[in-house]
Structure formats: structure tokens, C-alpha cells
Amino acid sequence: MMIIETFGITKVFKTLVAVDHIDLSVEEGEIFGLLGPNGAGKTTLLSMLATILKPTEGTAKVNGYDVIHQPAKVRKSIGMVFQAPSSDELLTGWENLYLHAMMYGVPSHVRRSRIDEVLELVDLKDRAKYLVKTYSGGMRRRLELARGLLHKPKILFLDEPTLGLDPQTRSHIWDYIKRLSKEEGVTVLITTHYMEEADALCDRVAIIDHGKIRALDSPANLKMKVGKSMIKAKVKNPNVEVIRSLPYVSKVEAKDGNVTIILSEVGAHIQEVLCNLGEASFVELREPTLNDVFLQLTGRGIREESAEGWEEKLIQVRTNE
């Protein structure tokens, strides 16, 4: 079943087309990534699906509900973790969760146990009674993740969930998101400009640039289709001609016993290549990354930019309207 479907969804801010007629389907239970540089339209798309922004054109269905005509039902079906910190600094972690539980109609008899559950999951149990203003960035993020899950939503929207977190916390959160999607069957829609994140986490990835989807597939397929792998080897007498004649090899260079082979799908062909190449004293493989995919599609890499860009844009847009 498709739990999210968009139909030519479009958002125009004055003259900027942030999201340009996107058609997209997300299957129930999958972890779906929107990968692209800042300003690509990922957050705008997510905001429209979360009913925070109204589409200029087109529409979308989330959990079977129309985002324009049934926003309240959409909101009940989703949990949202925003890019910028959105927990209440003047309250404790526990109070933040308690208020969220009440606002989302979590029945009173399970409120406390549910709060304990999610606090445990993000390892914040011993900090729950402290004011959020004393938390570190990573702790706030974990609290917000916990909050997004509190009402057991069918779909979880994560907007750059590990932005600004240290690598250890980041992989901790990845594990957590994976476990959650597996155990609870929650569909996860995540925006990111970290390709490792999309690669490590997502079942399918849509690469977005300038408001359009440029490619959509599993990370492995994307890399296989677009990216080329490379084998570097040290071989005394390489059979260059044999290798060159293999159908999947696009380029072979040999110089002083150092061979560089450019080919597709290295995993499937390495055996054959090495058998034909000759006796190698050293072999190095380089798999394509999603950045290569992006590079090939757009002619540039995914830039790493500051977290504030989007928020400032939104405030600007708000004042302009």
C-alpha cells in the first residue's frame, strides 16, 4: 500500500519554484530518503506533506488523507521532527513529552508508560527532570525524536534528523530509526544532505535538485546505474587486452604494473576481472557513492551547508507574504 502519494505537488514562493510538480509514492513501512543539497526543496516538500505549508498547485495523500482538505487527519497520522530545535526550553524534557502526549490525544492511562518507553529508547531517562535549556544539541534532538514517536504515528517525518550531531550520536540515531521502522512498521520519510545517511538508512532514495526529482531508487541501484566502480591493482604482466574486451569494462589503463580499471557493478564482476588480469600483488576497490550519483546527475557535488539556511528562508517568506 502507498502510504504517501503526491500528485504534481508544487510550491512557488514569489518567483522561486521550490517544489516543481513532484509525483512520488512511498510504500508503507519503508524508510524513504529525500536527498539533495540545501535549497533543493526537500523541506518545503516535507512541510507540505505535514500540512504546514499549502501547495501552490497539485496535492498529496498521506495515510489516505488529502493534505489540503483533511489536514487534521493527516496530522494525527504523522510525527514530525523539525530541522531546528523545537522543544520548549522553559520546560523539562518530561514535561515536553507530557504536553505532546496530551496534544496528540494519547490516552491518559498509557501516557506515563509511553513516555518512559520513548525516554528509554533515546537514553534520556536520567535527564528527564531537567529543563531543556540545560540540554546539549544532541540531547535535544533525541528528545524531539522521542516526542515524534510518542503518539505512535504511522509515518514519521524527519527533517535532517542528525544535523549537527557527533558521529557517535548520529549512528546511534540511525540504529534507532532502523529498529523502529522494523519493529513498529513505521514509515519514515527523511530529508538529508548527508549521503552516508541516505545510504546507511534508506530503502529508497529520491535525489532532489531545484525542486525536481532527478533519480529515485534504492541506494544500491542508484549507485549501480550511475556510478562507476574502480579497481586499482598491481600486476606484473597484466592482460590489458582481455580485460578491455569485457563488456562491462569501460576503461583500462596500465602503467609500470599499476592497472586502473573503470567498470560497472564491481561486486558482480570482480571475480572474472581478477581471474583474467594476471597475478596481482595488491588490489584496491572503490565503490561509487551517492555523491557520485549526484555529481553525474547535476554536474556538482552535494554541498555541506549551514543548518540555518532553511529556517531563515522560511522566516523571510513569512514576512514577504
Binding site: 505535514a50 500540512t51 504546514i52 487534521a72 487527519k73 496530522r75 494525527k76 504523522i78 514530525m80 523539525f82 531546528a84 530545535p85 523545537s86 522543544s87 520548549d88 526550553e89 505532546h100 496534544m103 496528540y104 490525544g105 516526542r147 529556517e311 522566516i315
Partner: peptide
């Protein structure tokens, strides 16, 4: 409204 806390309230399923 400028703080993101309120964004969380705005997405809550409340009228």
C-alpha cells in the same frame, strides 16, 4: 511563532 516550539504546536492535530 519565531521559536520552533510553536511549530510543534501548530502541527498538532488541534483546531
Amino acid at each position: 511563532k519565531r521559536m520552533d516550539f510553536f511549530k510543534e504546536v501548530m502541527v498538532a492535530p488541534l483546531s
